[in-house]
Simulated scan of single mutants.
Amino acid sequence: IEGKGNQFAKAAASSVADSPGQTPFNPLLIYSSPGLGKTHLLQAIGNHVLHTNQKIKVVYVTSEKFMLDFIFAIQNNKSTKFAQSYRNIDVLLLDDVQFFQTKEQTQEQFFHLFNDLFQQGKQIVLTTDRHPNELTHLKDRLVSRFQSGLIVDIQPPDLETRIAILMKKAENEKLEIPYDVTEFLATSFTEDIRMMEGAMVKILALSSLTNTDITKSLSKAVIQDILGDKAFKKISMKEICKRVSRATEISETKLYSKSRQANIVFARHVAMFLCRELTDNSLVHIGNHFGKRDHATIIHACKTIEEKTNNDKHACELVDKIKSEL
């Protein structure tokens, strides 16, 4: 299902799949939080390429599998054969690059492979769970290579798209699920689509095995079992901004604005700091929430508030008060 959150990533993936190695999008790096469809998109590229031209050699591999194969090659004195097996491919689809962090020898091996494939005009597509700038334990020269092509992110889908995903899944499985249950599920899972689909499967299984109707009550029990008590207490960035606005007497509109007025900047920094501390959102997602600001701005805001709460009693009390209200 295509929505605003994955539209750009899907378009880039389609372009690469149609003309691997022939577009400016090389490498193509797709990043997002878990469960939003990176692997699905990566495999779709491979399937499309093979369907179009079966002579093209496509390799899909997880970063963990790449590392384990590399270790096996070292143990058995087959490093040259390992390197050669990857250098003869046309399209490399590498999943979960963040796994390479701290694995220095694997990074070194992949760096040389990357350069070799790139110079041959071969297509490279990578996925990771965060922006390359946030992969702090990857070597700078490897991150630099990743940034030389196109970087696209997949944002969590909006409510309407999540409902459409669930309805499509139910249609494919030839199942009838009440709309109010579908909407309740879509409202409860805002970040992880894989988990949302898993919850639907569990609801269907319970309904079938216990011979009970699919109701919101049954759905609530399943969701609580999967997410725990926090399922119905999850703090949103919008709620944080609302509380900060009330506590600082700065309107929400001004929090999202470009204003550099000192009291507005302070309130905005507090909101960014709390979004980072109280939610699971990445720096990129927080930046997007505050008017597409970059991750460096969020890091600066967090450091500023940390210093201020350590040295300023009033700032510390304000932040603690907002936290307790949330």
Rank of each mutant, 00 (worst) to 15 (best):
125 V>C: 14
91 V>T: 01
172 N>F: 08
201 V>T: 15
101 Q>P: 03
199 A>P: 00
251 S>P: 09
132 P>E: 08
226 I>D: 01
307 E>G: 05
118 F>Q: 04
56 I>D: 05
326 L>W: 07
57 K>I: 05
133 N>K: 12
104 E>W: 06
284 V>W: 14
187 T>I: 06
113 L>D: 07
96 D>K: 13
278 L>Q: 05
88 N>D: 14
262 A>Q: 14
278 L>R: 01
4 K>P: 08
124 I>V: 13
62 T>I: 00
168 K>P: 02
239 E>M: 13
218 L>I: 11
240 I>E: 00
307 E>S: 09
261 Q>G: 04
72 F>Y: 15
154 I>S: 15
72 F>K: 15
316 C>T: 13
53 N>M: 07
298 I>S: 04
246 R>I: 14
326 L>V: 07
255 L>K: 04
212 T>V: 10
7 Q>E: 08
250 I>G: 09
205 A>T: 15
53 N>K: 07
47 N>V: 11
116 D>P: 02
278 L>Y: 01
314 H>V: 11
314 H>S: 12
12 A>K: 12
114 F>Y: 01
305 I>Q: 05
82 F>L: 10
103 K>P: 03
274 L>T: 00
173 E>Q: 00
213 D>I: 03
187 T>G: 06
154 I>W: 12
94 L>Y: 08
319 V>L: 03
145 R>M: 04
313 K>R: 12
267 A>T: 04
215 T>C: 12
47 N>T: 12
227 L>A: 11
162 R>L: 00
107 Q>Y: 11
191 E>L: 14
156 P>Q: 04
173 E>F: 00
92 L>H: 10
162 R>I: 01
93 L>K: 09
285 H>Y: 08
211 N>R: 13
138 L>G: 06
150 L>R: 12
160 E>P: 05
37 G>F: 05
289 H>R: 06
76 N>G: 03
272 M>Q: 03
27 P>R: 11
101 Q>E: 14
159 L>G: 06
177 I>L: 08
200 M>R: 14
33 S>T: 10
